[in-house]
Amino acid sequence: MLKLIAFRIAQAIPVMLVVAVLTFLLMHLLPGDPATIIAGDQADQASIDQIRRDLGLDRPVPVQLWHWIVNLAQGDFGRSLMLNQAVADAVKERLPVTLSLAMLAFAITLPFGIAFGVIAAVWRDTWVDSAVMILALVGVSVPNFWIAILSVILFSVTLGWLPSAGYVPLHDSFSGWLASLIQPAVVLALFQIGYLARMTRSAMLDVLDQDYIRTARAKGVAVNTIIVKHAFRNTLMQVVTVAGYILSLLIGGSVVIEQIFALPGIGRLLVQAIMARDYPVVQGTMLLLGFAFVFINILIDLIYAYVDPRVRYD
């Protein structure tokens, strides 16, 4: 197991390097000069040149790339233009919000998505299956920011049950924290529940057709035991893979949802930075998020290995 961990981390390093280079290139090779963009439409040539020198943009691209990588290795992700703050600090401040939101949504997604998928598979081709799958399909077809607005109208404005905006840190008040996040988290989870239910169902159907399920039935194992112990244990491998992917999607999705509920998370930082043309922040947040996703993938691989004896013992 230790060897596997070491191996996966070693494997992740080149991917992270590529992520770093791609994020750099994204901001440097695409049309448009960052300095001009930062300076704004009305700026004169002198101030543009000044900005260019400040940011080191006057140097050749490979040199800039080298500096970018070296700084990254030292934990320096650049400095924000609008916040007068290091990018790493700005991200660190907002990380708990986004993580809270994503993890809460994740905690909502897993039980519902899995339960719906398993139920649909077990009752395949009945009205239960159709009903669950239609719901799941609606879940993956409805834009979440739109549902978010409708939800605010209903639960915050009309019923007044939940706050419509703002964030309460966990260490201030648990109930406040939960109240501030439950609505965005549920909205965020809707798409993923549908997605996970569809994936779980198809994985369950695959497994239920396997010979070893017939073996279990021939032994006289009860239906519920077959579903949980024999079938679901085998779909767990696929569910773990999808779940990791879903965690990434939730973090991505929170970018949009944070706007609606005015949650001061990374997504809001990213969008503000794009609007303010604060390109070091854009670059830095993209990169950190990229690293986070690579890390999630490693975690998934390790859980996968733990769940599947065939991987664990090889």
């Binding site: 695409l30 448009g32 990213l270 993209m286």
Partner: peptide, 18 residues
């Protein structure tokens, strides 16, 4: 490396640059 990013985030990043 590109797949590490959720599509929506990648689209946001690329679009921000373009």
């Amino acid at each position: 490396a590109l797949l590490a990013f959720p599509a929506i985030l990648l689209a946001i990043g690329i679009n921000a640059a373009l």
